[in-house]
Simulated scan of single mutants.
Amino acid sequence: MKRFACGDVIPGCNATFTAADEEGIFAQCMPHGAAEHGMTEVTPELRATVRSLITTV
Results as ranks from 00 to 15, higher is better:
A20K: 02
C6P: 04
L53N: 04
Q28W: 00
T49A: 07
P31G: 01
A35W: 06
E22S: 13
E22I: 14
M39V: 15
S52R: 12
P11A: 06
C29E: 13
A34M: 14
E36K: 12
R3G: 05
L53W: 00
P11W: 06
A27H: 04
T49V: 09
E45N: 13
E45S: 14
F26Y: 14
T43M: 11
G7N: 13
E41A: 04
M39F: 11
A34W: 14
F4E: 00
H37S: 06
K2Y: 03
A48Q: 15
T16H: 01
P11Q: 07
F4R: 00
M39N: 04
A5W: 13
A27Y: 02
I25H: 06
V57T: 09
E45I: 08
V57R: 06
E36H: 07
M30F: 13
G12I: 09
R3N: 07
K2L: 04
F17C: 05
I10D: 06
T56W: 00
L46G: 08
A35G: 13
M30A: 11
A27T: 14
F4L: 12
I10P: 04
P11D: 02
H32T: 10
C29T: 13
T56S: 12
S52T: 02
E45T: 11
A15W: 12
E45Q: 13
I25E: 05
S52K: 08
A35Y: 11
C29N: 06
E41Y: 04
A15R: 10
G12C: 06
T55C: 07
F26K: 07
A34G: 09
A35C: 03
G38W: 00
L46H: 05
E41K: 09
R47V: 06
R51H: 11
E22Q: 07
A20F: 03
I10A: 10
T43D: 06
D8Q: 09
T40L: 13
T18M: 08
I25C: 08
T40V: 14
V50I: 15
T16K: 08
K2V: 10
V57Q: 05
T18G: 05
A15D: 08
A15I: 07
L46N: 12
T43L: 11
T16C: 10
T55D: 04
R47D: 15
E41G: 01
E23Q: 12
K2C: 07
M39L: 08
R51D: 15
N14M: 10
H32M: 14
I25G: 01
T55F: 01
T18L: 06
T55L: 12
